[in-house]
């Protein structure tokens, strides 16, 4: 079994994830996993260009008033949003005692994430805690990008993150790279480790629960009596391409290891 040694937790804040709850949850995970938290705020160039079209307008969800979309105003608003995100990040880092850095870029958010993230990174993807939810264009782009990047992905649930509970590892076999990561998190948090594995792969291993299928329902049935705080799986393993949905269904963060 080869275990990936992670270096950074990468958090993209430009698509609307700059809310304090998401930043705080990311900072907590950085502390648990012993990682630095790197936040990047990408000013979406496509959005800035849209303002060149004469008919584009924006509506405020607070006042419901329309106003022309102007490049100058948009830039000011983006800077203010970035500043707010920077302050939240600094406060969360102070509270958890982690190291953090923050960078502002301009361009295509997806491309920047792909360029920035390497195999030793974990990229955080959190659905906006706003009315548009996971239908938001920026979130959809980031979700797709995360899947394409070389980094592992930490899917955060839309609701609050549990603060205690066992760590669940969904492994393909005893050599699954996710298993080592899950064990390390369990040690770090002093939580119980629950390992799920396809029945065929279990062999002689004890204290492993058989995973009878690869659907969300199978997972729910297997974890019926467990209130976990984190699920770790590998992308190549069972449910590896369903991290986002598992996170939403279980209401817990899901770390999908490359």
């Amino acid at each position: 079994m080869t275990e990936t040694r992670f270096r950074r937790l990468v958090l993209e804040l430009g698509h609307g994830a700059a809310d304090p709850a998401t930043i705080s949850a990311a900072a907590s995970f950085a502390r648990i996993l012993g990682l630095d938290l790197f936040a990047l705020f990408v000013e979406d160039e496509a959005l800035l260009r849209v303002s060149d079209l004469p008919f584009t307008r924006e509506i405020s969800p607070v006042t419901f008033r329309w106003r022309p979309l102007q490049a100058g105003q948009l830039e000011i608003d983006l800077r203010a949003t970035a500043d707010r995100a920077r302050r939240h990040l600094a406060a969360a880092a102070r509270a958890t005692g982690i190291r953090q850095s923050f960078q502002v870029y301009r361009g295509d958010p997806g491309s920047h994430v792909i360029e920035t993230c390497v195999a030793t990174d974990i990229v955080v993807v959190s659905p906006p805690r706003r009315v548009e939810g996971d239908t938001a264009h920026g979130y959809q782009v980031l979700r797709e990008t995360a899947r394409l990047s070389a980094a592992s992905v930490l899917w955060l649930p839309p609701a609050a993150v549990p603060r205690s509970g066992p760590i669940v590892a969904v492994a393909a076999d005893p050599d699954d790279p996710g298993l080592g990561v899950a064990r390390r998190v369990a040690d770090q948090t002093r939580e119980r480790l629950v390992v799920l594995m396809p029945e065929a792969a279990i062999g002689d291993a004890v204290a492993v629960r058989p995973l009878r299928g690869e659907s969300l329902q199978d997972l729910a049935a297997t974890l019926d009596d467990v209130k976990e705080r984190l699920i770790v799986m590998s992308r190549a393993g069972p449910l590896g391409d369903m991290g986002a949905r598992v996170s939403v269904q279980r209401g817990v963060p899901v770390l999908v290891v490359e």
């Binding site: 496509a46 959005l47 849209v50 079209l53 969800p61 608003d77 920026g138």
Partner: peptide, 12 residues
């Protein structure tokens, strides 16, 4: 596309 701007929403 429905886009999120810092201050609201726009269509493009």
């Amino acid at each position: 596309a429905i886009l999120r701007t810092p201050a609201g929403f726009t269509l493009a």
